[in-house]
Design a protein around this nucleic acid. Structure first.
Lengths: 154, 154
DNA sequence: TATTGTTATACTCTATAACTATA
DNA sequence: TATAGTTATAGAGTATAACAATA
């Protein structure tokens, strides 16, 4: 099932690496009783709170899809809806204490597992990989769906 | 929403690149009337046919999940179930002519789009990225969910 | 009128458990 | 008994369209 060793192109490399990371992310989420989507929501909310509309854009979900996701995650006691301080129409989604704890655990464990994926690369190669992917991510304006490490409070 | 430019670690780079590729893959699928899962199934079947059990392992899906996915894709006229030549209990899933055509178009378009993601990298940098990701993919025995380019017939 | 968010509805996707059929 | 696959069931995820409430 693994490849024989032929030179791989950037495209196939990216798509297959994506498949790999998706699998690791999903398995990690599962072990914390989360769906990948709820895990992602928690990770997004770690650095700060967002309004529903912002989350919708950030996660590329239809508004009603996000309503459902937040409903279920709220029902699980992990996030909470608050009135938006500046717009009475708006809603701010925030981690509950329990959600924050779980987010932290899920985030840390996921980091550990994803960190092992390039275990076969030398330290300087990992550095190069991080830099190149980092530029691609920046160039394409990928939102912070998974923060660097710190959790700067609001 | 994009980062300011700080050094990013391999883990965040991988997870965020994954988010990016997922989005591109999903959008490409959508434009061809496919769900990402059905698009992935078609891509897997491009090089050759597989038995249900093989697909289940390859795609990391529960058997019954795969049954449903194949049902829906078959209903759409894109794949077909055939008796397995060597095991009367088994079923072989194959692309229909229409499925093959659509798979080809979806695959090509997805390649085009994913290829643009690292547009900001120099040719030699793209090469390095492909090599490093390629090794990670090989080391982790990622199945061929997205072939290199050719479609060697059975 | 435009914006924020929810509801109604309909599929797709996924898993677990129980089942059928065939080694 | 073990293996290949399906069925039954339940819940999660998603989108479109229509709606309510508030600028």
């Amino acid at each position: 099932m693994a490849d024989e060793g032929g030179r791989i192109g950037v495209v196939a490399a990216l798509v297959r690496a994506t498949f790999l990371v998706n699998a690791v992310y999903a398995e990690s989420a599962r072990e914390y009783g989360l769906t990948p989507q709820q895990g992602q929501l928690l990770c997004v909310l770690m650095p700060r709170s967002y309004a529903m509309g912002e989350l919708s854009t950030l996660l590329r979900l239809a508004k009603s899809s996000l309503t459902g996701l937040v409903d279920r995650t709220e029902r699980n006691g992990l996030v909470r809806r608050e009135p938006h301080p500046r717009d009475p129409r708006g809603t701010l989604v925030t981690l509950t204490p329990r959600g924050r704890t779980l987010a932290r655990e899920f985030y840390d464990e996921t980091c550990r597992r994803v960190d092992e994926l390039p275990a076969g690369l030398a330290p300087d190669e990992r550095e190069v990989l991080a830099t190149l992917l980092g530029r691609m991510v920046r160039d394409n304006e990928v939102p912070i769906v998974f923060a660097e490490s710190g959790h700067p409070p609001d």
